[in-house]
Design a binder for these strands. Sequence first.
DNA 1: AAAGCGTGGAG
DNA 2: TCTCCAAGCTT
Length: 373
Amino acid sequence: MLRSSVPFRMDLTHAHIDSFRSALLRWFDAHQRALPWRHVADPYAIWVSEVMLQQTRTDQAAPYYTRFLEAFPTVFALAAADLDAILRCWEGLGYYARARHLHQAAQAIVRDHGGRLPASYEALRALPGVGPYTAGAIASIAFGLPHPAIDGNARRVLTRYFALHEATDRHLRRLASRHLPHARPGDFNQALMELGAVICTPAAPACGKCPVHEGCKAHAEGNPERYPTRKARKKVPHYDVAAGAVFDSAGRLLIQRRPREALLGGLWELPGGKRRQGESLRETCQREVQEELGIVVSVNELIDRVRHAYSHFRITLYAFRCHVVAGTPVSAQQLPVRWVALSDLADYAFPRANRRILDALVQAPGNITPRKP
DNA sequence: AAAGCGTGGAG
DNA sequence: TCTCCAAGCTT
């Protein structure tokens, strides 16, 4: 039943499967990169690493992983932490819902599992932020359970090795399951990913160094780069955005917190928004600050211009120095609003583009916060 | 099911 | 400069 639904059973002889996985594991044992989450046994740490690695390169996640575990060494520490502290630790890593889900899941683990990561695929999958890949990765790496973990790397390796033009996630999981050595499922999964990251790369794969190139159909066909089939990208819109660095008479800066569930959820930011048709950037700045906070500001010099690409659109952000002319800031969306000294900006998590502006602000002359008399 | 969700490195 | 895409998940 299972077997007949897989279209390549010719290749799935026991001998072939055995040589594939033993060659792969041998290569992994000899050539795996040294990464901070290698040879880690703590299921909590493994979980943190897997969440950080979702859609994120290993070299970007590595320093965050180390810092995060220092700040939150156990499930209990994470469950008891403030989301703000977690977001500060996560600043710059992107996809901030991951931090929120990590926090929620930690609380669920304390509440429902006595503070230990549940040792089953199903229970892991039920945690917020844990999908099919992450559940399989934790189950296999932390608990030695025979579940596949198909990420983008593994998908590329498998579609090339078997020359699959159309492969659903279900097919790939089933295929990987057949090759899983029950003695070392975690190492096998990691080996597949490592091969994809280091040898079987999207462009210019190093087939000459590949431990399984002899059985690889894409290599035999001569053009492995045509796998996996990618779907056409939609072009992303671009917006001009104006933001106000609004100062009060004491030289403090006005910031507001973004709603939890939104883009950049829970981070702090300068007020601002998209430029409208026919509007000047200074007009945008003035209007947005007034709409969001109910105050009238004078819009003065341009502090900086930052180009930034988000996941599904891009912007050019123009930040202007502003001063309050009339009113007291109150968020129209009932969001937290705060006046902060420039020296305290490290206490808040900001999106990357905003952080650039703030850095420019702190560097710029004329920003010495007046000493209180 | 398709869209929303960050950031940075490589080419 | 621009495109691609990375140890995916959620709704």
